[in-house]
Amino acid sequence: MSLNAILLQTETVADTLANAAAAATTDVSVTENVSYLEFLMKGGIMIIPIIILLFYCIFVIVERYLSIKKATKQDVLLLHDVKAQLKAGKIDNALMVCNRQNTASGNILRSGIAIIGRPISEIESVMEKTANVEISQMEKGLGHLGLISGIAPILGFIGTISGVIKIFHTISNTGNLNIQTISGGLYEKMISSGAGLVVGVVAYAAYHLYNMWIDSFALKVEKQTLEIINIIHEPQHGN
């Protein structure tokens, strides 16, 4: 192969690379000019319910966080003060200590202290039932997060499948088969799958994190209940 031929091929390859780089730069600039909302709406009709689920998911996450944080607020001196009042035989003062803060721990302890004098099994049963009610209040709405974590990815997948069906239907009608038609339409429809997965992951993570938070609180309450029951049982056991 002559030197001229080699130089000619080299120039051709350089021109091709330059054109490709220019086209890529143009595509990037066009993509940057498109807003995130416009890009998201390219995902099709299924993007709308996914966006609605996202806003509702955020609402539930914030509302549950504030509610659970308030209910699980711990007074570090609550159990110590209650135990001190009970050992001194001052039941009314112990009830006043429980009312000091409107928390789940205080409500559970108050329910048992309020019926001191009845059998220990009954006091323990009442405290356990109160704990179950408080925990149920904390778990209120968490089922919605679990539902969203399952529904959002499915909606995204449905949007992608419907988009692919439309692409191939158009190809079958027009007979125009090229990579731009397929890839361009396909990437737009896969936006719905990506959005659905993001919403699903957020809801799934929040659901399990809140359940772990509540389980940790339930364990602390169980320990506090056991300590109070032991203190209430002491004088009766002595008698």
Rank of each mutant, 00 (worst) to 15 (best):
M1S: 13
L3Y: 12
I6H: 12
T10W: 10
T10D: 15
V13D: 14
A21N: 13
A22G: 09
A22P: 04
S29V: 13
V30A: 15
E32F: 07
E32W: 03
E32G: 06
N33W: 04
E38F: 04
E38M: 07
L40S: 05
M46V: 11
I51G: 02
L53C: 09
F55H: 04
F55W: 09
V60I: 15
Y65H: 09
Y65F: 12
L66E: 07
A71D: 07
A71G: 04
L78Q: 05
Q85K: 15
A88I: 05
T103V: 04
N107M: 11
I108V: 08
I120M: 10
E124M: 02
A131S: 05
A131G: 01
S136T: 11
Q137F: 10
L145A: 02
L147G: 11
G159L: 03
I161F: 08
G163Y: 02
F168L: 04
I171P: 00
N173R: 14
L177Y: 10
N178E: 06
I182H: 04
S183K: 11
G185K: 04
M190K: 01
S193P: 06
G196E: 03
L197G: 03
V198F: 11
V198D: 05
G200V: 01
V202A: 11
A206Q: 03
I214A: 01
S216M: 10
F217R: 00
L219I: 13
K220S: 11
K223N: 13
Q224Y: 08
Q224V: 03
L226S: 12
L226H: 08
E227I: 13
I228Y: 00
I229C: 01
I231V: 14
H233K: 13
P235S: 08
